[in-house]
Design a protein around this nucleic acid. Structure first.
Lengths: 186, 206
DNA sequence: ACGTTACTTTGCAAAGC
DNA sequence: GCTTTAAAAAGTAACGT
């Protein structure tokens, strides 16, 4: 039998960092080809890297948010590219800016269809939100690890809110255990 | 001491005015949706609790009132879809959905998703279908639920498809367009759910 | 009746209204 | 609370052909 934990795929990693230097975003928007900056709309400048594919939000304070990367390594790579571009523009960037992973979004497959109505009751209405009229997924807030899981009728799931790679694995093991304990899996 | 007394008085007074306005809105929306008195009463009770537990600061009276009607209708077994509720509310759909989740969570109301069968009598009546097709529609939904095809699907879409399928099975004239109109569900969705309901039914025979 | 695009939900940071 | 970014899940809807 295939282990649901083996089906986990990281889909998106959100991280934050900072270069420890104030920035003139107006000037940066001119010097960085492909940069989007609409201060009336949003205070951050948007810059996308192609390889690895990611999007960075660069702020006047020098703080940067990186999102869209498929792994923690990709986050470091993408930010490394951005740091180099900034240095190339004569902007001083700290040697090794600290990069903090803020959220990891993963998908997985439990391998069996799920009866979401029964699951909503079994998991406990207090930790569950299930409104099929509005969204087909059941939202389950797990305590340990502290993540949010979206469960679908197909058995496919999304795990989000975790900061460590291990969170998704622990969450999948935990949810499989709970669903099995309820006799609602397979 | 006097200031504190004044504050309490002012708070009580403003809550009373707040409640008056909300109850008026609840009455107006419930009437517009043809909801029975017990739903108005339940909605009012929920609103009073929301007010007592200070859920109003930060939300609009209209938004919370609307959520109370939405929740109360479901709890009474006479659900209205979010679209139907939004039609008679001054607040947009997204805010109603947000506020509804907030109220349900904070007041720990154990509101479960509407059972598709609960939409059937109203849709069948709006389409002037017989009692037989109404029963047929409910039976189609019961069978589909046992087969587990309900998960993730809109109760409204399932009910609309069941009513359409039942009308055809009992040789009563209806069109997907007519069902789409009364249920406010696209014809594409009615078609998709219709095929699933019949498949679940065939599986019963096969 | 297709296909495509796009909206719903979850999580998170950033600066500022 | 909102604004912007990214990505998955599945259902629903609205386009165009």
């Amino acid at each position: 039998m295939t282990n649901p934990a083996d089906s986990i795929e990281i889909q998106n990693v959100v991280a934050s960092t900072g270069i420890g230097q104030e920035l003139d975003l107006e000037a940066l928007a001119e010097d960085l080809p492909g940069a989007d900056f609409n201060p009336d709309n949003f205070p951050g400048l948007v810059y996308r890297t192609q390889e690895p594919k990611a999007a960075a939000l660069i702020f006047r304070s020098g703080k940067i948010v990186c999102t869209g990367a498929k792994s923690i390594d990709d986050v470091h790579e993408a930010l490394g590219i951005i740091f180099e571009k900034l240095r190339g523009l004569q902007i001083p960037v700290e040697d090794d800016p600290e990069i903090t992973v803020q959220n990891i979004v993963s998908s997985a497959d439990l391998g069996h269809n799920l009866n979401l109505n029964a699951l909503a009751i079994g998991l406990g209405l207090e930790d569950v939100e299930y409104e099929p009229e509005q969204f087909p997924g059941l939202v389950y807030r797990m305590d340990e690890p502290e993540v949010v899981i979206l469960l679908f009728g197909s058995g496919k799931i999304v795990i989000t809110g975790g900061k460590r790679t291990d969170d998704a694995e622990e969450a999948v093991e935990e949810i499989v255990e709970r669903i099995e304990g309820l006799g609602l899996l397979g | 001491r006097l200031r504190k007394w004044n504050e309490r008085f002012r708070t009580r007074d403003s809550k009373e005015r707040n409640l008056k306005q909300a109850l008026g809105e609840i009455d107006r929306m419930a009437s517009a949706q043809g909801l029975p008195d017990n739903v108005r009463e339940t909605a009012s009770v929920i609103y009073r609790r929301a007010l007592d537990e200070d859920l109003l600061p930060g939300r609009s009276i209209e938004g919370v009132s609307t959520s109370c009607v939405y929740a109360a209708a479901r709890m009474a077994g006479v659900p209205r879809s979010l679209d139907e509720i939004a039609d008679v509310s001054r607040v947009e759909k997204a805010e109603i959905a947000r506020t509804y989740r907030y109220v349900v969570r904070e007041l720990k109301l154990e509101v479960k998703p509407a059972d598709p069968e609960q939409y059937v009598p109203r849709f069948a009546s709006d389409l002037e279908l017989s009692e037989e097709s109404e029963m047929r529609a409910k039976s189609l939904l019961r069978n589909a639920k046992e087969k587990g095809v309900h998960s993730g699907k809109s109760p409204v879409g399932l009910a609309a498809a069941a009513v359409y399928a039942a009308a055809l099975l009992t040789n009563e004239k209806t069109t997907q367009a007519a069902v789409s109109e009364v249920a406010d569900i696209s014809e594409v969705t009615i078609r998709n759910r219709y095929h699933e309901l019949l498949e679940a039914e065939d599986g019963l025979v096969a």
